[in-house]
């Protein structure tokens, strides 16, 4: 047991500091990816609702393909495809090839996957808003923009939150898949610590506990947010 605590100590030779740095990277990638996913989701949802046939077609391919292909495959594909395309573009414009930082590549890859799910969550939430609320906004003379900003989006939030909370938890866990392309987030740090010390069970247990803490804290935050946005609805309980 003492041995275990020494191994988890925050400063070397303990590996605790590495695990916490890994957790921090995991959190940053998840948060960035989540925000990018939300932005893509908003664009995707309203594109599907209001877009012409071409845009709708493109978005349907996006959401269908992303949701059909296993995450791990997508991450490998998007990572290598994305970095290759970027470097091809750079070299063709006469710039040097560049190494994309792990953080940004991770955000882009997972955010792109999240966007497909966010699109569907937000589209569902839009259709759940009672049509009368939208008509009342038009009838009072609001412009389309004002109606969306002041009425439709806020009315969508309670319907979207359960799905969006889920997506956040998925984002935090999906970051572990980035280990396959060599990002030092929590999963990879754990693997290295475990490999170096042979204390596999303990390090994976510690990592599991850190993921659980992140998840519990997030659930708490989402519960608060949800309560705030459900003020207008009588509670079901």
């Amino acid at each position: 047991m003492e041995n275990a605590l020494e191994l988890l100590a925050l400063s070397p030779p303990g590996w605790g500091g590495n695990l916490l740095r890994g957790l921090w990277s995991t959190f940053q990638i998840a948060l960035g990816a989540y925000i990018l996913g939300l932005a893509l989701g908003l664009f995707g949802a309203f594109g599907k609702i209001y877009g012409g046939p071409v845009l709708r077609g493109v978005l349907t391919v996006y959401t269908t393909v992303i949701r059909a292909v296993p995450e791990l495959v997508l991450i490998l594909l998007l990572y290598y495809l994305g970095t290759d395309l970027l470097n091809m573009a750079l070299t063709s414009m006469g710039f040097e090839r560049m190494d994309i930082s792990g953080l940004w590549a991770g955000i882009y890859v997972i955010g792109f996957v999240q966007g497909a799910y966010s699109t569907e969550v937000l589209r569902g939430a839009f259709h759940a808003v009672p049509f009368g609320q939208i008509e009342a906004a038009r009838a009072i003379g609001m412009s389309a923009f004002t109606a969306h900003w002041r009425i439709i989006l806020p009315a969508m939030i309670p319907f979207a939150l359960p799905g969006l909370a889920n997506l956040w938890l998925i984002a935090t866990k999906e970051t572990a898949l980035l280990a396959v392309v060599g990002f030092s987030e929590l999963a990879l740090e754990t693997k290295q610590a475990a490999g170096a010390t042979k204390a596999y069970f303990m390090f994976y247990l510690a990592a599991g506990a850190l993921y659980l803490m992140l998840s519990l804290a997030s659930t708490g935050v989402f519960a608060l947010v949800e309560r705030r946005f459900r003020r207008g609805q009588p509670s079901q309980s």
Binding site: E135, A136, G141
Partner: peptide, 25 residues
């Protein structure tokens, strides 16, 4: 003229059968 429509609507106060109050306000 969308602007005209919005302006005229703001001058026509509509009351619906199902109230249609904004639930989040």
């Amino acid at each position: 003229d969308k602007k005209q429509v919005a302006r005229l609507r703001s001058q026509l106060g509509m009351v619906f059968q199902s109230f249609n109050l904004w639930q989040h306000m």
